[in-house]
Simulated scan of single mutants.
Amino acid sequence: MSDDRRLEVLRAIVQDYVRTSEPVGSKALLERHQLGVSAATVRNDMAALEEEGLITAPHTSAGRVPTDAGYRLFVDRLSTIKPLTRAERTAIERFLHGAVDLDDVVARTTRLLSSLTSQVAVMQYPSLTSSTVRHIELVPLGGPRLMVVLIVNTGRVEQRVLDAGRDLTGSEDVVAELRARVNATSVGQPLAAVPARLATLVDAARPEDASLTSAVADVLRDALEEQTEERVVLAGTANLARVGTDFPTSLSSVLDALEEHVVLLRLMGNLSSTREGDQVAVSIGAENPYAPLRTTSVVATSYGVAGGLGILGPTRMDYPQAMAAVRAVAQYVAEILDG
């Protein structure tokens, strides 16, 4: 049996099983695909694929289904990821560019990915390690009240209102000077490095401005601590129920695992370590390190250097379409957050 023909038969089995969810027999393969060989040859090829652990018989019928190893070989031998259509890409761009802030971007992204793939969409909020301060604004609100606005390079915005301990009416120059010093100290710096730099700023403040400077620094430190929380957002969990036959005994375990965001963060991190650059990583079945998710597959990539996004679903998945959707959406998200 030639390797090329074996791969062609495997490809046909994967495609048919993904589409129909029914075990695939040699007769169906010959009817649906131009394999150019006899029924006996196809049966021999299928027997060889089964011996190699790439397909298996779920019961005593003549039909076969791909194994995790079969899906892996299929994915690894994809020469290219079929691009989305122009209409699909236009729809993605329009939908995501309507977002008003980072939370909206994340919510729209997960809903969009879930809709495009009919799987569970997972998106990790931008990571602390790659986030920097874009700008800090100080806005007098009248009397002693001052609004502090922290803007991160990923688009995250945090607002706090503090009591300056003194009336700031007529102190526009003082606020403007403090704003300039805070930005000179913080802009472009990693979030984790900013608190120490703010402490230096407080130490260098004039005695008459020390209280105000300290209050602003304390509020910013609180806001920065909230930025350190790693978060993931899901959409489309109900899609798993629609393919319940793919999880005859494990659906409840999968749903429980999806509620453990620490597990998802680790999963996204593991996939990040296996891919290069903006490549799409695929983890299939038993390759997943967390046991309750070993009946699922995960397709993920990064958006810029900020975080990861992807989809999770049964191993019986349209991998080329899922990979194309994940890659395209990630590219648009990166453009929005970097813009």
Rank of each mutant, 00 (worst) to 15 (best):
residue 118 S to Q: 13
residue 127 S to P: 00
residue 121 A to I: 09
residue 92 I to Y: 02
residue 92 I to L: 02
residue 115 S to L: 06
residue 128 L to S: 14
residue 124 Q to N: 13
residue 100 V to Y: 14
residue 98 G to V: 07
residue 118 S to I: 00
residue 120 V to H: 07
residue 121 A to L: 05
residue 104 D to G: 07
residue 93 E to I: 03
residue 110 T to I: 08
residue 98 G to P: 01
residue 98 G to R: 15
residue 111 R to P: 00
residue 127 S to E: 04
residue 100 V to E: 14
residue 108 R to K: 15
residue 118 S to F: 07
residue 100 V to L: 15
residue 120 V to M: 04
residue 112 L to T: 05
residue 110 T to D: 06
residue 124 Q to V: 12
residue 97 H to D: 12
residue 100 V to S: 12
residue 101 D to Q: 12
residue 95 F to T: 12
residue 100 V to C: 04
residue 115 S to E: 11
residue 125 Y to M: 10
residue 100 V to W: 07
residue 118 S to C: 01
residue 103 D to F: 06
residue 106 V to Q: 08
residue 111 R to Y: 01
residue 123 M to E: 05
residue 101 D to R: 11
residue 107 A to R: 15
residue 100 V to F: 09
residue 126 P to A: 14
residue 110 T to R: 05
residue 118 S to T: 10
residue 114 S to L: 05
residue 95 F to H: 15
residue 124 Q to C: 13
residue 95 F to K: 06
residue 94 R to P: 00
residue 99 A to W: 03
residue 126 P to V: 12
residue 113 L to D: 03
residue 126 P to Q: 15
residue 126 P to Y: 11
residue 104 D to N: 14
residue 117 T to E: 08
residue 114 S to T: 02
residue 123 M to H: 01
residue 113 L to P: 04
residue 123 M to N: 04
residue 122 V to D: 01
residue 115 S to Q: 09
residue 128 L to E: 15
residue 103 D to C: 00
residue 112 L to M: 13
residue 121 A to K: 03
residue 105 V to N: 03
residue 107 A to K: 11
residue 121 A to E: 03
residue 114 S to I: 04
residue 105 V to M: 08
residue 102 L to E: 12
residue 125 Y to G: 04
residue 111 R to F: 02
residue 98 G to N: 13
residue 101 D to T: 09
residue 110 T to C: 12
residue 116 L to R: 02
residue 105 V to A: 00
residue 109 T to S: 15
residue 121 A to T: 04
residue 113 L to C: 10
residue 109 T to L: 09
residue 125 Y to S: 01
residue 125 Y to I: 00
residue 93 E to L: 14
residue 109 T to R: 03
residue 92 I to K: 01
residue 117 T to M: 15
residue 96 L to F: 07
residue 96 L to M: 04
residue 99 A to C: 15
residue 124 Q to D: 13
residue 108 R to L: 13
residue 113 L to N: 09
residue 117 T to V: 07
residue 127 S to G: 14
residue 96 L to R: 07
residue 113 L to E: 02
residue 105 V to D: 02
residue 113 L to H: 10
residue 102 L to S: 03
residue 102 L to C: 11
residue 109 T to W: 01
residue 115 S to A: 14
residue 95 F to D: 02
residue 96 L to I: 06
residue 111 R to G: 06
residue 101 D to S: 12
residue 122 V to Q: 04
residue 93 E to R: 11
residue 124 Q to R: 14
residue 107 A to I: 05
residue 119 Q to D: 09
residue 97 H to E: 07
residue 108 R to D: 01
residue 99 A to F: 13
residue 111 R to I: 02
residue 121 A to S: 13
residue 92 I to C: 00
residue 109 T to G: 09
residue 115 S to H: 09
residue 98 G to H: 15
residue 113 L to V: 05
residue 103 D to K: 06
residue 99 A to T: 13
residue 124 Q to L: 11
residue 127 S to K: 10
residue 104 D to W: 08
residue 116 L to K: 08
residue 111 R to V: 08
residue 104 D to F: 12
residue 122 V to M: 06
residue 123 M to D: 04
residue 114 S to Y: 03
residue 108 R to G: 02
residue 104 D to V: 10
residue 93 E to T: 14
residue 106 V to I: 15
residue 95 F to S: 08
residue 107 A to Y: 12
residue 106 V to F: 09
residue 119 Q to C: 11
residue 96 L to N: 08
residue 94 R to W: 05
residue 123 M to R: 06
residue 128 L to C: 00
residue 126 P to W: 08
residue 127 S to L: 10
residue 128 L to Y: 09
residue 97 H to V: 02
residue 95 F to Q: 06
residue 97 H to Y: 14
